[in-house]
Simulated assay, not measured.
Amino acid sequence: MKVLKSFNLRGWLLVGTAACGVVLAGAIATLGSPASAGASLEERKLPMKFGWVACEPNCRGWVSAVGIITADTPKDFDDFARGRQLGGATVVLDSSGGSVNDAITLGRRFRNLGLLTTVGITQQNGGGKGARPRIASEAYCESMCVFLLLAGKKRYVPDAAHVRVHQIWMGDRADDAKAASYSAQDLMIVERDIGRLAKYTFDMGGAGDLLSLALNVPPWEDLHELDASELKLTNLVTTDLVSDVLPHVDVAAPAMADLAPKTQARFGEEPEPAKSTKTAEALVPTGGVATPAAAPQK
């Protein structure tokens, strides 16, 4: 069972993050170099950005969604979607997770538009006549990214992708969760957000097994990577055919096994602080003692 220790976010966080990439027409292909892999990892540390990847006349194109889900992400998506015909498009998520409530809000936007979801990293081919964008299939979708994946009307996960889950926790105490103290207010917030996440999961057609698997992994343990049978058990995967979400695409498995490190370096803070939201958010346990981030003002 593969596992990953990931990032450290500021504020109230649900223990667990994800790297989700949405992929569409164009080939799921190899990364060109280790430098490219590093660049992708850096992008996953930033607030989520959306981009339209055009590949006409061979395919319709797709939405690239890369980074951490913050309080600004739903509005940023609304701004991106304005004036675009996104109905039924595919989203390629590459994300380490983020805010629970904001991920739920964004996921409902995805479902309302009938979007399809998958995991991957978009590569823009530079130069060359007729060069087309490609998709690297070995990518990461962790924590709340997993629930964005669930929002797709159809959902496909490549064999090389890593989908990882873990438990809700306060992110400012995830580094040394056993030694931290908690108030009744803290417990209320976590319990409330578990309820919201459960309702969302069932609304999206997910199974209770997804919540069970995630909530069994405490912040002092490595994230749990879902295997092929668990992806089906949780109903995260609705199709084994890439053509159901990436029509008219030649799919190639990545040649590089080290697209992203199995253990990723921690980072102390978000480059750009997210707005405070009265919620637990998604954060990957770091498994060590670090300087705790200040809790947001309520």
Score class of each variant (00 low, 15 high):
104 I>D: 04
6 S>I: 04
17 T>Y: 00
247 P>W: 05
74 P>F: 10
224 H>K: 09
79 D>N: 12
131 A>F: 04
164 R>Q: 08
15 V>D: 08
135 I>F: 04
89 A>Y: 07
68 I>S: 11
34 P>G: 01
47 P>T: 09
130 G>Q: 04
196 R>S: 04
293 A>C: 07
296 P>A: 08
258 D>N: 14
196 R>W: 12
21 G>F: 09
241 L>R: 11
55 C>L: 05
121 I>H: 10
241 L>A: 15
111 R>A: 15
41 L>C: 08
48 M>K: 05
258 D>C: 08
275 K>T: 06
173 R>V: 03
187 L>I: 10
208 G>P: 01
48 M>L: 13
199 K>Y: 02
25 A>C: 10
16 G>D: 10
71 A>H: 08
4 L>V: 15
139 A>K: 01
202 F>N: 01
112 N>F: 04
94 D>R: 09
139 A>V: 00
144 M>H: 09
46 L>I: 01
175 D>W: 04
285 P>C: 02
193 D>K: 03
238 T>L: 06
196 R>T: 10
55 C>V: 13
240 D>L: 06
29 A>G: 13
32 G>I: 06
21 G>Y: 03
213 L>R: 05
135 I>C: 05
255 A>F: 04
250 D>M: 09
117 T>E: 02
38 G>N: 14
253 A>Y: 07
113 L>M: 11
226 L>W: 09
99 S>Q: 10
215 L>M: 13
17 T>S: 10
184 A>P: 01
266 R>N: 14
214 A>Q: 03
291 T>Y: 08
205 G>R: 02
261 P>W: 04
17 T>I: 11
81 A>N: 05
132 R>N: 09
68 I>R: 09
243 S>F: 00
24 L>P: 00
272 E>G: 00
51 G>N: 03
4 L>K: 05
203 D>K: 02
181 S>W: 02
139 A>P: 03
101 N>L: 13
284 V>E: 07
100 V>F: 05
284 V>L: 08
283 L>P: 00
8 N>H: 08
141 C>K: 05
241 L>V: 01
129 K>I: 14
180 A>Q: 11
115 L>Y: 06
154 K>S: 09
35 A>T: 11
288 G>I: 11
1 M>Q: 11
211 L>V: 11
203 D>N: 03
54 A>G: 11
3 V>G: 03
132 R>Y: 13
192 R>W: 00
16 G>Y: 06
242 V>Y: 12
214 A>N: 02
119 V>G: 06
155 R>D: 06
7 F>K: 10
33 S>W: 02
52 W>R: 01
133 P>A: 14
146 V>A: 06
69 I>K: 09
151 A>I: 01
58 N>V: 14
111 R>L: 06
110 F>C: 08
187 L>K: 14
53 V>I: 15
139 A>D: 12
160 A>N: 12
262 K>N: 14
